[in-house]
């Protein structure tokens, strides 16, 4: 699968890319929401791993932008976040076509979520 990782923490990006690559996927990472939108507009991905709390352009902003440009339906998104989320927020993410996974869950769970969503 071709996977885009949008996370402002470069170490996290690197580790996820390494693991996904190990598992035979093609993974690309960007560290900023806007950059992520550009990438999505320029290329097609099977899955997108999206962090929520990023400076300037947050994960929610990315979801909003994708919805506005009708790009959301073409992309399967896993929100992989460290911030606590309420059920309502998780519902909102689900409504916008994403799945939610807490960062307390490890790589194996992430891969499983990517496969099943």
């Amino acid at each position: 699968m071709k996977i885009l990782i949008i996370d402002d923490d470069e170490e996290t990006c690197k580790a996820i890319i390494a693991f996904l690559t190990l598992k035979g996927h093609q993974a690309v990472g960007v560290s900023d929401g806007r950059e992520g939108i550009e990438k999505i507009n320029a290329d097609t991905f099977d899955r997108i791993i999206l962090d929520m709390s990023m400076p300037d352009f947050s994960g929610m902003d990315v979801l909003q932008k994708l919805k506005e440009t009708n790009k959301l339906e073409n992309n399967k998104i896993v929100v992989y976040s460290a911030v606590a989320m309420s059920q309502e927020e998780i519902d909102v993410i689900a409504k916008k076509g994403g799945s939610f996974l807490s960062k307390s869950q490890g790589m194996n769970e992430l891969v499983q979520t990517l496969m099943t969503c």
């Binding site: 923490d9 170490e11 580790a15 693991f19 190990l22 960062k103 490890g106 790589m107």
Partner: peptide
Amino acid sequence: TPLVPIQANCEM
């Protein structure tokens, strides 16, 4: 945040 890469690397 820093736990994620450590965990990922351990899993790897």
